[in-house]
Design a protein around this nucleic acid. Structure first.
Lengths: 204, 204
DNA sequence: ATATAATGAACGATCGTTCGTTCAAGAAGA
DNA sequence: TCTTCTTGAACGAACGATCGTTCATTATAT
């Protein structure tokens, strides 16, 4: 047991990790095309090129696959979160964030997947918790930017910056939903969205 | 045939209409508790106190039941729409609308049902169309109020009142979702919501 | 040789829907 | 008014398909 390092180093382990990834990718595609509940475990296995039984060697079940996808969504938002950490003037940071998040959500996949996860989150507490945690991270970072903007007199004094952060995020996501459901390009809606947000937070 | 009025007056027809209503009510309850796809047609029939086969005498199938519920949602919003038709000063009308719509959505049933319908609307065009139509009605009425407020110098000149109307509605709904998902009372979130909306539209 | 990844047949449950049948309410004929 | 005929609402067994999951077996890397 002396030289037991590199736990994921063997050829086998690498292949296993790759299989897991393929299954997750396939699941995402299936959930996007047909929705979570309309997707069968066989659909995922077939699409991933994996046997039905083997899928259960990698995941405890269908529910676990969705839970893992939900946690993975968090890492996809890392670049957007990074934008909020910049030290440029708060209004510029806010503007950049709105653009970046809206652009991320301009991909219908991301919106549909989020809706799928949200609607499952209502009745599955573990997924609901993931959702809330992901959201809190985004809200905290945005609220910090708002607070800084208030201190610098770029933004108006608002009752609760965290509350405002929630509202701004809801605006972006709501616009993205609308874009997907109505077929309008996100680009067409972005300027109106920004105008509204800036008006809501500006010093006045 | 002289005195043959009341074409839907027979005892039979009234009983039939009542049965339909019971089925719809049962379906709503089931969809709320377990979600659309997790609800079986047998669950609905059992809850309505109706035989499985008979349910198909009243509805073409499970999908049709959801479609009818979606259209029924429209009529439930009639009181809220009526508020928007009032001729009080625009800011007061807007305030009343936000309160009313938020109060309507403060009932978790309404939010959950809306989410359930929305997520089905993505892949079922007929339900998607219903959703868009319902939304358009609300947006048009709200946009008219905004336009009036702009003319009266109560609201700032905004690029597109319809766009703004969309955003305001998305704010209210987003806040309602948050209220349901996080367990916070809608009352706690309402003042922050109003503050944000008023700041976004006020003359400045 | 040993451990484990991979396989797909099989399981019981449940899915949405269809079907033949029963029976009571309304229309027509006496 | 009483009787017959017609209509369609109500029923639940049955259908074929599919669901998520398990497991004994085979293949393969260590």
């Amino acid at each position: 047991m002396a030289d037991q390092r590199a736990p994921a180093g063997t050829k086998r382990d690498r292949a296993t990790a790759q299989r897991r990834g393929r299954i997750l990718d396939a699941a995402v595609m299936c959930f996007l095309e047909n929705g979570y509940h309309q997707t069968g475990v066989r659909d995922i296995a077939k699409r991933a090129g994996v046997s039905l039984g083997n899928l259960y060697n990698h995941f405890a079940g269908k529910h676990d696959i969705l839970a893992e996808i939900a946690t993975l969504e968090r890492t996809e938002l890392a670049p957007v979160l990074a934008l909020l950490a910049r030290t440029d003037p708060a209004p510029a940071v806010l503007d950049g964030f709105v653009t970046a998040y809206a652009t991320y959500l301009a991909k219908p996949e991301n919106v549909i997947l989020t809706i799928e996860i949200t609607s499952e989150a209502i009745r599955k507490p573990d997924i609901g918790d993931l959702f809330v945690a992901n959201r809190a991270e985004l809200v905290d970072a945005l609220a910090a930017v708002l607070t800084r903007g208030i201190a610098d007199r770029h933004f108006r004094a608002m009752p609760d910056p965290r509350d405002t952060a929630h509202l701004i995020i809801e605006l972006i996501e709501g616009t993205a939903y609308r874009s997907v459901l109505s077929g309008l390009a996100m680009g067409k809606l972005l300027s109106g969205l920004k105008d509204f947000i800036m008006a809501a937070v500006r010093e006045g």
